[in-house]
Design a protein around this nucleic acid. Sequence first.
DNA 1: TTTGCAATCACCCTTTCGGGTGATTAGACA
DNA 2: TGTCTAATCACCCGAAAGGGTGATTGCAAA
Lengths: 220, 220
Amino acid sequence: MMHSNNPTIISMIEDMTDIRENVSKYIALHDEFEVTQTFESIESFIHHVDVSPKFHCDILLLDVGLPGKSGIEGIPDILTRVNGVDIIMLTTYEEEEVILKSICAGACSYISKKSSLTQIVDAVRIVKMGGSYMSPSIAREIVSYLKVEKIAKTPTENSLTDRQNEILRSLAEGKTYKMISKELFISVETVRTHVKKLYKHLQVKNKAEAISMYLQGKVK
Amino acid sequence: MMHSNNPTIISMIEDMTDIRENVSKYIALHDEFEVTQTFESIESFIHHVDVSPKFHCDILLLDVGLPGKSGIEGIPDILTRVNGVDIIMLTTYEEEEVILKSICAGACSYISKKSSLTQIVDAVRIVKMGGSYMSPSIAREIVSYLKVEKIAKTPTENSLTDRQNEILRSLAEGKTYKMISKELFISVETVRTHVKKLYKHLQVKNKAEAISMYLQGKVK
DNA sequence: TTTGCAATCACCCTTTCGGGTGATTAGACA
DNA sequence: TGTCTAATCACCCGAAAGGGTGATTGCAAA
Protein backbone atom coordinates (compact mmCIF):
# COMPACT_ATOMS: atom_id res chain seq x y z
CA MET A 1 0.00 0.00 0.00
CA MET A 2 2.67 2.43 1.03
CA HIS A 3 5.63 0.63 -0.46
CA SER A 4 5.92 -1.47 -3.57
CA ASN A 5 7.67 -4.50 -2.03
CA ASN A 6 6.25 -5.07 1.42
CA PRO A 7 8.31 -3.22 3.98
CA THR A 8 9.22 -5.09 7.15
CA ILE A 9 6.85 -4.01 9.91
CA ILE A 10 8.74 -2.95 13.01
CA SER A 11 7.31 -2.26 16.44
CA MET A 12 8.98 -1.30 19.70
CA ILE A 13 8.48 -1.42 23.45
CA GLU A 14 10.75 0.99 25.31
CA ASP A 15 9.98 3.21 28.27
CA MET A 16 12.63 5.87 27.63
CA THR A 17 10.90 8.37 25.38
CA ASP A 18 14.01 9.76 23.72
CA ILE A 19 15.38 6.35 22.79
CA ARG A 20 11.98 5.17 21.63
CA GLU A 21 11.53 8.14 19.34
CA ASN A 22 15.08 8.45 18.07
CA VAL A 23 15.44 4.81 17.19
CA SER A 24 11.98 4.42 15.69
CA LYS A 25 12.31 7.56 13.62
CA TYR A 26 15.71 6.57 12.34
CA ILE A 27 14.53 3.12 11.36
CA ALA A 28 11.51 4.65 9.65
CA LEU A 29 13.83 6.64 7.41
CA HIS A 30 14.58 3.44 5.56
CA ASP A 31 12.10 2.41 2.88
CA GLU A 32 12.59 -1.26 3.65
CA PHE A 33 11.14 -0.74 7.14
CA GLU A 34 7.86 0.58 8.44
CA VAL A 35 7.52 1.45 12.12
CA THR A 36 3.81 1.19 12.86
CA GLN A 37 3.51 1.78 16.55
CA THR A 38 5.65 1.99 19.67
CA PHE A 39 4.75 1.27 23.29
CA GLU A 40 6.17 2.07 26.69
CA SER A 41 5.32 -1.14 28.52
CA ILE A 42 4.50 -4.80 28.03
CA GLU A 43 1.07 -4.15 29.48
CA SER A 44 0.17 -1.42 26.99
CA PHE A 45 1.49 -3.53 24.12
CA ILE A 46 -0.48 -6.61 25.21
CA HIS A 47 -3.61 -4.55 25.67
CA HIS A 48 -3.30 -3.04 22.25
CA VAL A 49 -2.76 -6.43 20.61
CA ASP A 50 -5.72 -7.92 22.44
CA VAL A 51 -8.10 -5.21 21.27
CA SER A 52 -6.65 -5.08 17.74
CA PRO A 53 -7.01 -8.57 16.23
CA LYS A 54 -5.41 -7.40 13.01
CA PHE A 55 -2.25 -6.17 14.70
CA HIS A 56 0.92 -7.55 13.26
CA CYS A 57 4.62 -6.84 13.24
CA ASP A 58 7.55 -8.73 11.80
CA ILE A 59 10.20 -7.53 14.21
CA LEU A 60 9.75 -6.18 17.71
CA LEU A 61 12.44 -4.20 19.48
CA LEU A 62 11.98 -4.97 23.16
CA ASP A 63 13.64 -3.23 26.07
CA VAL A 64 14.91 -5.55 28.79
CA GLY A 65 14.56 -3.11 31.70
CA LEU A 66 10.95 -2.14 31.50
CA PRO A 67 8.96 -0.85 34.50
CA GLY A 68 6.24 -3.28 35.52
CA LYS A 69 6.57 -6.60 33.71
CA SER A 70 10.14 -6.91 32.40
CA GLY A 71 10.98 -7.52 28.79
CA ILE A 72 12.02 -11.09 29.46
CA GLU A 73 8.86 -11.88 31.39
CA GLY A 74 6.84 -10.42 28.56
CA ILE A 75 8.34 -12.56 25.82
CA PRO A 76 6.02 -15.56 26.24
CA ASP A 77 2.95 -13.31 26.19
CA ILE A 78 4.18 -11.58 23.06
CA LEU A 79 5.05 -14.79 21.23
CA THR A 80 1.66 -16.34 21.86
CA ARG A 81 -0.11 -13.23 20.59
CA VAL A 82 1.96 -12.06 17.63
CA ASN A 83 2.47 -14.87 15.20
CA GLY A 84 5.90 -15.21 13.69
CA VAL A 85 7.35 -12.11 15.30
CA ASP A 86 11.12 -11.89 15.74
CA ILE A 87 12.10 -10.22 18.97
CA ILE A 88 15.29 -8.15 19.27
CA MET A 89 16.16 -7.28 22.85
CA LEU A 90 17.42 -3.78 23.64
CA THR A 91 19.93 -3.85 26.46
CA THR A 92 21.62 -1.09 28.39
CA TYR A 93 24.70 -3.13 29.16
CA GLU A 94 25.72 -6.40 27.61
CA GLU A 95 24.42 -8.33 30.59
CA GLU A 96 25.24 -11.88 29.63
CA GLU A 97 22.84 -13.65 31.92
CA VAL A 98 19.94 -11.47 30.91
CA ILE A 99 20.62 -12.01 27.25
CA LEU A 100 20.88 -15.76 27.71
CA LYS A 101 17.55 -15.79 29.51
CA SER A 102 15.98 -13.68 26.79
CA ILE A 103 17.15 -16.04 24.11
CA CYS A 104 15.93 -19.08 25.99
CA ALA A 105 12.62 -17.33 26.47
CA GLY A 106 12.32 -16.88 22.72
CA ALA A 107 14.08 -13.69 21.67
CA CYS A 108 16.14 -14.15 18.55
CA SER A 109 18.71 -11.39 18.94
CA TYR A 110 19.73 -8.37 21.00
CA ILE A 111 21.48 -5.05 20.55
CA SER A 112 22.95 -2.59 23.00
CA LYS A 113 21.25 0.80 23.25
CA LYS A 114 24.72 2.26 23.15
CA SER A 115 25.17 1.03 19.62
CA SER A 116 25.01 3.58 16.87
CA LEU A 117 21.77 3.95 14.98
CA THR A 118 23.38 2.44 11.91
CA GLN A 119 24.43 -0.57 13.96
CA ILE A 120 20.90 -0.99 15.22
CA VAL A 121 19.59 -0.91 11.68
CA ASP A 122 22.23 -3.44 10.71
CA ALA A 123 21.03 -5.75 13.48
CA VAL A 124 17.44 -5.37 12.32
CA ARG A 125 18.52 -6.14 8.79
CA ILE A 126 20.32 -9.28 9.89
CA VAL A 127 17.19 -10.48 11.68
CA LYS A 128 15.08 -9.58 8.66
CA MET A 129 17.35 -11.80 6.57
CA GLY A 130 16.78 -14.65 8.99
CA GLY A 131 19.99 -14.27 10.94
CA SER A 132 20.82 -13.24 14.45
CA TYR A 133 23.19 -10.52 15.62
CA MET A 134 25.53 -11.79 18.30
CA SER A 135 28.71 -10.39 19.82
CA PRO A 136 31.69 -12.72 20.35
CA SER A 137 31.34 -12.69 24.14
CA ILE A 138 27.65 -13.54 24.10
CA ALA A 139 28.25 -16.15 21.42
CA ARG A 140 30.78 -17.76 23.71
CA GLU A 141 28.38 -17.59 26.63
CA ILE A 142 25.78 -19.45 24.64
CA VAL A 143 28.26 -22.00 23.38
CA SER A 144 29.33 -22.74 26.95
CA TYR A 145 25.72 -23.08 27.95
CA LEU A 146 25.09 -25.69 25.27
CA LYS A 147 28.25 -27.51 26.29
CA VAL A 148 27.27 -27.77 29.94
CA GLU A 149 23.81 -28.87 28.95
CA LYS A 150 24.95 -31.75 26.82
CA ILE A 151 28.26 -33.01 28.04
CA ALA A 152 28.85 -32.92 31.79
CA LYS A 153 31.94 -35.08 31.45
CA THR A 154 32.84 -37.91 33.81
CA PRO A 155 30.81 -36.71 36.78
CA THR A 156 30.23 -40.14 38.22
CA GLU A 157 31.91 -42.08 35.41
CA ASN A 158 28.71 -43.24 33.77
CA SER A 159 30.27 -44.64 30.65
CA LEU A 160 28.66 -47.48 28.77
CA THR A 161 30.02 -49.71 26.04
CA ASP A 162 29.25 -48.83 22.42
CA ARG A 163 26.68 -51.57 22.24
CA GLN A 164 24.97 -50.49 25.41
CA ASN A 165 24.83 -46.92 24.18
CA GLU A 166 23.38 -48.04 20.89
CA ILE A 167 20.65 -49.92 22.70
CA LEU A 168 19.97 -47.13 25.17
CA ARG A 169 19.50 -44.74 22.27
CA SER A 170 16.97 -47.09 20.76
CA LEU A 171 15.14 -47.44 24.06
CA ALA A 172 14.84 -43.65 24.24
CA GLU A 173 13.25 -43.73 20.80
CA GLY A 174 10.52 -45.96 22.17
CA LYS A 175 11.62 -49.18 20.52
CA THR A 176 10.84 -52.52 22.12
CA TYR A 177 13.46 -55.20 22.69
CA LYS A 178 12.05 -57.11 19.75
CA MET A 179 12.42 -54.16 17.40
CA ILE A 180 15.94 -53.49 18.58
CA SER A 181 16.91 -57.14 18.17
CA LYS A 182 15.74 -57.07 14.56
CA GLU A 183 17.56 -53.84 13.78
CA LEU A 184 20.81 -55.07 15.27
CA PHE A 185 20.42 -58.63 13.98
CA ILE A 186 20.77 -60.15 17.43
CA SER A 187 18.50 -62.14 19.70
CA VAL A 188 15.95 -60.52 21.98
CA GLU A 189 17.72 -62.29 24.81
CA THR A 190 20.93 -60.52 23.95
CA VAL A 191 19.19 -57.18 23.94
CA ARG A 192 17.82 -58.04 27.36
CA THR A 193 21.29 -58.92 28.60
CA HIS A 194 22.67 -55.58 27.43
CA VAL A 195 19.78 -53.74 29.01
CA LYS A 196 20.23 -55.48 32.34
CA LYS A 197 23.92 -54.63 32.36
CA LEU A 198 23.47 -51.02 31.44
CA TYR A 199 20.84 -50.66 34.16
CA LYS A 200 23.39 -51.84 36.68
CA HIS A 201 26.03 -49.46 35.35
CA LEU A 202 23.64 -46.54 35.54
CA GLN A 203 22.22 -47.75 38.84
CA VAL A 204 18.65 -47.59 37.63
CA LYS A 205 15.96 -50.21 37.67
CA ASN A 206 13.81 -49.52 34.66
CA LYS A 207 13.58 -48.09 31.19
CA ALA A 208 12.13 -44.79 32.31
CA GLU A 209 15.01 -43.93 34.63
CA ALA A 210 17.59 -44.99 32.06
CA ILE A 211 15.98 -42.81 29.39
CA SER A 212 15.83 -39.88 31.77
CA MET A 213 19.53 -40.14 32.49
CA TYR A 214 20.29 -40.48 28.81
CA LEU A 215 18.20 -37.50 27.75
CA GLN A 216 19.57 -35.36 30.52
CA GLY A 217 23.05 -36.07 29.26
CA LYS A 218 24.10 -37.86 32.43
CA VAL A 219 25.33 -40.87 30.50
CA LYS A 220 28.80 -41.38 29.05
CA MET B 1 61.30 -18.90 26.19
CA MET B 2 60.71 -17.77 22.66
CA HIS B 3 58.45 -14.84 23.37
CA SER B 4 58.36 -12.44 26.23
CA ASN B 5 54.61 -12.63 27.01
CA ASN B 6 53.49 -16.23 26.54
CA PRO B 7 52.22 -16.73 23.01
CA THR B 8 48.98 -18.66 22.58
CA ILE B 9 49.79 -22.23 21.62
CA ILE B 10 47.91 -23.32 18.52
CA SER B 11 47.59 -26.82 17.13
CA MET B 12 45.69 -28.16 14.15
CA ILE B 13 44.14 -31.34 12.78
CA GLU B 14 43.50 -31.17 9.04
CA ASP B 15 44.01 -33.83 6.40
CA MET B 16 44.48 -31.50 3.42
CA THR B 17 48.19 -30.80 3.36
CA ASP B 18 48.02 -27.44 1.61
CA ILE B 19 45.40 -26.01 3.96
CA ARG B 20 47.20 -27.39 6.97
CA GLU B 21 50.49 -25.80 5.98
CA ASN B 22 49.17 -22.51 4.64
CA VAL B 23 46.99 -21.79 7.62
CA SER B 24 49.50 -22.90 10.23
CA LYS B 25 52.33 -20.97 8.63
CA TYR B 26 50.24 -17.83 8.33
CA ILE B 27 49.17 -18.02 11.97
CA ALA B 28 52.77 -18.60 13.00
CA LEU B 29 53.75 -15.32 11.38
CA HIS B 30 52.06 -13.56 14.31
CA ASP B 31 54.12 -13.19 17.44
CA GLU B 32 51.11 -13.64 19.66
CA PHE B 33 50.66 -17.20 18.37
CA GLU B 34 52.86 -20.26 18.31
CA VAL B 35 51.91 -23.23 16.19
CA THR B 36 53.59 -26.21 17.78
CA GLN B 37 52.44 -29.19 15.82
CA THR B 38 49.83 -30.16 13.24
CA PHE B 39 48.19 -33.51 12.58
CA GLU B 40 46.27 -35.15 9.77
CA SER B 41 43.83 -37.24 11.77
CA ILE B 42 42.16 -37.56 15.14
CA GLU B 43 43.94 -40.86 15.61
CA SER B 44 47.42 -39.43 15.10
CA PHE B 45 46.61 -36.50 17.37
CA ILE B 46 45.27 -38.74 20.14
CA HIS B 47 48.26 -41.04 19.83
CA HIS B 48 50.68 -38.14 20.09
CA VAL B 49 48.92 -36.73 23.14
CA ASP B 50 48.83 -40.12 24.83
CA VAL B 51 52.59 -40.64 24.43
CA SER B 52 53.46 -37.02 25.26
CA PRO B 53 52.13 -36.27 28.75
CA LYS B 54 53.43 -32.74 28.55
CA PHE B 55 51.55 -31.90 25.38
CA HIS B 56 49.42 -28.82 25.58
CA CYS B 57 47.71 -26.35 23.32
CA ASP B 58 45.39 -23.44 24.01
CA ILE B 59 43.49 -23.48 20.77
CA LEU B 60 42.98 -26.39 18.38
CA LEU B 61 41.84 -25.89 14.81
CA LEU B 62 39.88 -29.02 13.95
CA ASP B 63 38.67 -30.07 10.53
CA VAL B 64 35.12 -31.43 10.45
CA GLY B 65 35.56 -33.74 7.46
CA LEU B 66 38.44 -35.88 8.53
CA PRO B 67 39.06 -39.38 7.13
CA GLY B 68 38.60 -42.05 9.81
CA LYS B 69 37.09 -40.61 12.96
CA SER B 70 35.37 -37.32 12.09
CA GLY B 71 36.17 -34.06 13.79
CA ILE B 72 32.89 -34.06 15.71
CA GLU B 73 33.38 -37.62 16.92
CA GLY B 74 36.86 -36.71 18.04
CA ILE B 75 35.85 -33.74 20.19
CA PRO B 76 35.07 -35.71 23.36
CA ASP B 77 38.39 -37.56 23.13
CA ILE B 78 40.26 -34.31 22.67
CA LEU B 79 38.52 -32.51 25.52
CA THR B 80 39.23 -35.28 28.00
CA ARG B 81 42.92 -35.30 27.04
CA VAL B 82 43.84 -31.67 26.52
CA ASN B 83 42.84 -29.62 29.51
CA GLY B 84 41.28 -26.25 28.82
CA VAL B 85 41.67 -26.39 25.08
CA ASP B 86 39.36 -24.27 22.93
CA ILE B 87 38.34 -26.00 19.75
CA ILE B 88 37.66 -24.08 16.54
CA MET B 89 36.04 -26.18 13.85
CA LEU B 90 37.19 -25.80 10.25
CA THR B 91 34.32 -26.35 7.84
CA THR B 92 34.20 -26.57 4.08
CA TYR B 93 30.66 -25.27 3.87
CA GLU B 94 28.63 -23.59 6.55
CA GLU B 95 26.73 -26.78 7.28
CA GLU B 96 24.39 -25.68 10.02
CA GLU B 97 23.60 -29.09 11.44
CA VAL B 98 27.24 -30.06 11.60
CA ILE B 99 28.18 -26.85 13.35
CA LEU B 100 25.38 -27.22 15.85
CA LYS B 101 26.51 -30.75 16.63
CA SER B 102 30.10 -29.59 17.00
CA ILE B 103 29.11 -26.91 19.45
CA CYS B 104 26.98 -29.28 21.48
CA ALA B 105 29.90 -31.71 21.49
CA GLY B 106 32.11 -29.03 22.98
CA ALA B 107 33.64 -26.93 20.20
CA CYS B 108 33.57 -23.25 20.98
CA SER B 109 33.66 -21.75 17.51
CA TYR B 110 34.05 -22.52 13.85
CA ILE B 111 35.38 -20.90 10.70
CA SER B 112 34.96 -21.68 7.04
CA LYS B 113 38.07 -22.83 5.17
CA LYS B 114 37.02 -20.43 2.44
CA SER B 115 37.59 -17.50 4.76
CA SER B 116 40.64 -15.39 4.17
CA LEU B 117 43.71 -16.04 6.27
CA THR B 118 43.20 -12.74 8.05
CA GLN B 119 39.64 -13.74 8.92
CA ILE B 120 40.89 -17.02 10.33
CA VAL B 121 43.39 -15.18 12.47
CA ASP B 122 40.60 -12.83 13.59
CA ALA B 123 38.52 -15.81 14.65
CA VAL B 124 41.45 -17.26 16.57
CA ARG B 125 41.97 -13.91 18.25
CA ILE B 126 38.33 -13.73 19.27
CA VAL B 127 38.58 -17.16 20.84
CA LYS B 128 41.83 -16.21 22.53
CA MET B 129 40.02 -13.25 24.09
CA GLY B 130 37.36 -15.61 25.38
CA GLY B 131 34.78 -14.96 22.70
CA SER B 132 33.31 -17.04 19.93
CA TYR B 133 33.13 -16.25 16.25
CA MET B 134 29.66 -16.82 14.88
CA SER B 135 27.96 -15.85 11.61
CA PRO B 136 24.41 -14.42 11.75
CA SER B 137 22.86 -17.50 10.18
CA ILE B 138 24.52 -19.91 12.57
CA ALA B 139 23.73 -17.62 15.48
CA ARG B 140 20.09 -17.77 14.48
CA GLU B 141 20.26 -21.52 14.14
CA ILE B 142 21.53 -21.80 17.68
CA VAL B 143 19.00 -19.35 19.02
CA SER B 144 16.21 -21.41 17.45
CA TYR B 145 17.67 -24.53 18.96
CA LEU B 146 17.59 -23.01 22.43
CA LYS B 147 14.05 -21.84 21.87
CA VAL B 148 12.82 -25.28 20.82
CA GLU B 149 14.64 -26.83 23.73
CA LYS B 150 13.02 -24.64 26.30
CA ILE B 151 9.73 -23.41 25.00
CA ALA B 152 8.23 -25.33 22.13
CA LYS B 153 5.17 -23.14 21.98
CA THR B 154 1.93 -24.54 20.61
CA PRO B 155 3.53 -26.36 17.67
CA THR B 156 0.96 -29.12 17.50
CA GLU B 157 -0.90 -28.07 20.63
CA ASN B 158 0.59 -30.72 22.86
CA SER B 159 -1.06 -29.59 26.03
CA LEU B 160 -2.13 -32.08 28.63
CA THR B 161 -4.43 -31.69 31.58
CA ASP B 162 -2.90 -31.02 34.99
CA ARG B 163 -3.53 -34.58 36.05
CA GLN B 164 -1.95 -35.99 32.92
CA ASN B 165 1.09 -33.79 33.38
CA GLU B 166 1.41 -34.86 36.97
CA ILE B 167 1.38 -38.50 35.93
CA LEU B 168 3.74 -37.97 33.00
CA ARG B 169 6.22 -36.33 35.35
CA SER B 170 6.05 -39.36 37.63
CA LEU B 171 6.52 -41.72 34.69
CA ALA B 172 9.70 -39.83 33.75
CA GLU B 173 10.95 -40.38 37.28
CA GLY B 174 10.68 -44.10 36.73
CA LYS B 175 7.66 -44.72 38.91
CA THR B 176 5.31 -47.60 38.19
CA TYR B 177 1.56 -47.21 37.87
CA LYS B 178 1.20 -48.75 41.30
CA MET B 179 3.53 -46.24 42.92
CA ILE B 180 1.81 -43.35 41.20
CA SER B 181 -1.61 -44.58 42.27
CA LYS B 182 -0.50 -44.67 45.90
CA GLU B 183 1.02 -41.20 45.73
CA LEU B 184 -2.07 -39.69 44.20
CA PHE B 185 -4.53 -41.77 46.24
CA ILE B 186 -6.25 -43.12 43.17
CA SER B 187 -6.67 -46.57 41.65
CA VAL B 188 -4.07 -48.13 39.39
CA GLU B 189 -6.82 -48.39 36.82
CA THR B 190 -7.28 -44.64 36.91
CA VAL B 191 -3.59 -44.10 36.41
CA ARG B 192 -3.79 -46.44 33.43
CA THR B 193 -6.70 -44.47 32.03
CA HIS B 194 -4.78 -41.21 32.30
CA VAL B 195 -1.73 -42.76 30.70
CA LYS B 196 -3.74 -44.14 27.78
CA LYS B 197 -5.30 -40.74 27.16
CA LEU B 198 -2.07 -38.80 27.34
CA TYR B 199 -0.47 -41.27 24.92
CA LYS B 200 -3.21 -40.47 22.44
CA HIS B 201 -2.78 -36.73 22.94
CA LEU B 202 0.94 -36.97 22.40
CA GLN B 203 0.50 -39.49 19.61
CA VAL B 204 2.91 -41.95 21.14
CA LYS B 205 2.45 -45.59 21.95
CA ASN B 206 4.62 -46.25 24.97
CA LYS B 207 6.23 -44.83 28.08
CA ALA B 208 9.62 -44.34 26.43
CA GLU B 209 8.31 -42.06 23.70
CA ALA B 210 6.18 -40.09 26.13
CA ILE B 211 9.14 -39.54 28.45
CA SER B 212 11.32 -38.49 25.53
CA MET B 213 8.79 -35.87 24.48
CA TYR B 214 8.45 -34.68 28.03
CA LEU B 215 12.17 -34.37 28.68
CA GLN B 216 12.75 -32.65 25.37
CA GLY B 217 10.22 -30.02 26.35
CA LYS B 218 7.84 -30.92 23.57
CA VAL B 219 4.91 -31.29 25.93
CA LYS B 220 2.56 -28.72 27.37
C1' DT C 1 -30.71 -28.14 29.75
C1' DT C 2 -28.05 -30.95 27.05
C1' DT C 3 -23.65 -31.84 25.49
C1' DG C 4 -18.68 -32.40 26.38
C1' DC C 5 -15.04 -33.70 28.85
C1' DA C 6 -11.92 -34.60 32.98
C1' DA C 7 -11.48 -37.76 36.50
C1' DT C 8 -12.56 -41.79 38.55
C1' DC C 9 -12.81 -47.14 38.52
C1' DA C 10 -13.27 -52.13 36.60
C1' DC C 11 -12.35 -56.39 33.76
C1' DC C 12 -10.27 -58.89 29.85
C1' DC C 13 -6.26 -60.28 27.44
C1' DT C 14 -1.59 -60.03 25.23
C1' DT C 15 2.91 -58.23 25.06
C1' DT C 16 6.87 -56.39 27.21
C1' DC C 17 9.93 -55.92 31.12
C1' DG C 18 13.01 -57.06 34.71
C1' DG C 19 15.69 -60.31 37.64
C1' DG C 20 18.11 -64.49 38.18
C1' DT C 21 21.09 -68.18 36.55
C1' DG C 22 24.09 -70.07 33.32
C1' DA C 23 26.78 -70.86 28.86
C1' DT C 24 29.93 -69.84 24.71
C1' DT C 25 33.16 -67.20 21.96
C1' DA C 26 36.56 -63.88 20.80
C1' DG C 27 39.71 -60.42 21.88
C1' DA C 28 42.58 -57.81 25.32
C1' DC C 29 45.92 -57.81 28.72
C1' DA C 30 49.38 -59.35 31.86
C1' DT D 1 49.20 -69.04 29.19
C1' DG D 2 45.57 -67.94 32.12
C1' DT D 3 42.36 -64.19 33.26
C1' DC D 4 38.93 -60.74 32.19
C1' DT D 5 35.39 -58.73 29.84
C1' DA D 6 32.12 -57.61 25.86
C1' DA D 7 28.91 -59.70 23.23
C1' DT D 8 26.20 -63.35 22.21
C1' DC D 9 22.18 -66.60 23.45
C1' DA D 10 18.72 -69.45 26.48
C1' DC D 11 15.08 -70.53 30.00
C1' DC D 12 12.16 -69.50 34.09
C1' DC D 13 8.94 -66.62 36.33
C1' DG D 14 6.37 -62.87 38.09
C1' DA D 15 5.45 -57.99 37.57
C1' DA D 16 4.36 -54.11 34.66
C1' DA D 17 2.58 -52.14 30.67
C1' DG D 18 -0.66 -51.43 26.90
C1' DG D 19 -5.14 -51.86 24.30
C1' DG D 20 -10.06 -52.31 24.31
C1' DT D 21 -14.66 -51.71 26.20
C1' DG D 22 -17.69 -49.78 29.36
C1' DA D 23 -19.48 -47.11 33.45
C1' DT D 24 -20.25 -43.12 36.90
C1' DT D 25 -19.77 -38.43 38.64
C1' DG D 26 -19.44 -33.63 38.37
C1' DC D 27 -18.42 -29.37 36.29
C1' DA D 28 -18.56 -26.05 32.62
C1' DA D 29 -19.73 -24.32 28.31
C1' DA D 30 -23.07 -24.06 24.58
